[in-house]
């Protein structure tokens, strides 16, 4: 056979080609309009706000004021930004490894043939359907400083920044474990039966089998999870707002969304670009670091 199966080199008069372009415009138009207005235009505006202070005073005519690149460097080096970045980083480091490990344990436990296993699988995946807001409300029963059940557990106190990050991490670990469970279980069940049997015939023990056969086979799923969970953690907001009566721990997004109106537009624009940069950096880093260790099977 010729290798042309996937080429769309059909007989077409120029009129038909023109029609296809028109149709493509029609089909892609809505998507592109939304992306232009709410993904790319805001990126432009973030850069603009970082460099210009908009004139919001309706009584004074005047152009937006150029504040220059120094606004970017000053804000990125500011105590506010570095502190928020530190909060987000700690939160990420606490929630991702723990959530992943917990989820993998759940998946391994539930990946077996027992009567009623479906019930356990549904319970383990239930946190996926729980929104961050609901999860936060649920955990106030435990974490609330006055009458939560863990109000006397000092290292999970919401009243101090360091312990508040830990407390909020508990919620995120609970949710991450559910997502990890769903995806790892699907990956485990996709490992071909023959490979498991071959490993058994080769005389691998259970533990050795898991680390030298199963983990490499599910590594693409773990890789995907690592990226998703880290990015989610860097972009966490709702848990911090709902759980903390006093916002002692303020992550990056808290400074960007700025519910208290503490910063100027230009400052928040720089922080947004900072989050953008950190997210890209982390994604690239993870791909480079992890890709070598990942087995992509077909």
């Amino acid at each position: 056979m010729t290798t042309t199966k996937n080429r769309r080199d059909t007989v077409a008069s120029s009129r038909k080609r023109w029609n296809e372009s028109g149709l493509a415009l029609l089909f892609l138009g809505p998507t592109m309009a939304v992306f232009a207005l709410f993904s790319y235009y805001p990126l432009y505006r973030l850069v603009y706000f970082s460099l210009y202070r908009p004139n919001r005073n309706s009584f004074i005519e005047g152009a937006d004021e150029w504040i220059g690149f120094s606004n970017i460097w000053d804000n990125l080096a500011s105590e506010t930004f570095t502190a928020a970045l530190w909060v987000s980083a700690k939160f990420t480091l606490m929630t991702v490894p723990l959530g992943l490990t917990a989820g993998i344990c759940l998946a391994v436990a539930a990946d077996r043939h027992l009567r009623g296993i479906k019930i356990f699988q549904t319970i383990f995946s239930s946190t996926v359907a729980t929104s961050v807001a609901v999860a936060s409300v649920v955990f106030t029963t435990l974490l609330q400083p006055e009458n939560g059940l863990w109000r006397d557990v000092d290292w999970l106190s919401l009243n101090k920044s360091a312990s508040a990050i830990r407390a909020i991490s508990v919620v995120a670990v609970w949710q991450n474990a559910g997502l990890t469970f769903v995806i790892v279980l699907a990956a485990l069940q996709a490992v071909p039966q023959e490979i498991k049997e071959a490993a058994r015939l080769d005389g691998y023990g259970t533990v050795r089998n898991f680390f030298s056969v199963t983990v490499p086979m599910i590594s693409p799923a773990l890789m995907f999870l690592a990226v998703v969970l880290v990015v989610n953690a860097l972009q966490a907001y709702a848990q911090f707002e709902i759980l903390q009566p006093v916002k002692t721990a303020q992550p990056l997004l808290y400074k960007i969304a700025d519910p208290d109106g503490a910063s100027t537009i230009s400052t928040r624009a720089v922080f947004s670009l900072g989050l953008f940069g950190v997210t890209i950096l982390v994604s690239l880093l993870q791909f480079n670091l992890l890709e070598k260790r990942v087995h992509y099977g077909n």
């Binding site: 769309r8 080609r17 296809e20 372009s21 493509a24 415009l25 892609l28 998507t31 592109m32 992306f35 709410f38 993904s39 790319y40 235009y41 805001p42 990126l43 505006r45 973030l46 706000f49 990015v231 972009q235 907001y237 997004l253 960007i256 969304a257 700025d258 537009i265 928040r268 624009a269 922080f271 947004s272 989050l275 953008f276 997210t279 890209i280 994604s283």
Partner: peptide, 26 residues
């Protein structure tokens, strides 16, 4: 088939780096 198909696809991929968390303020 339409002109700038690759560009349109790149625009699409690019939005993955621009979630609402990054763009919310603007």
């Amino acid at each position: 088939e339409f002109p700038f198909k690759k560009l349109a696809f790149a625009v699409l991929v690019g939005t993955l780096l621009l979630p609402i968390e990054v763009t919310i303020m603007a």
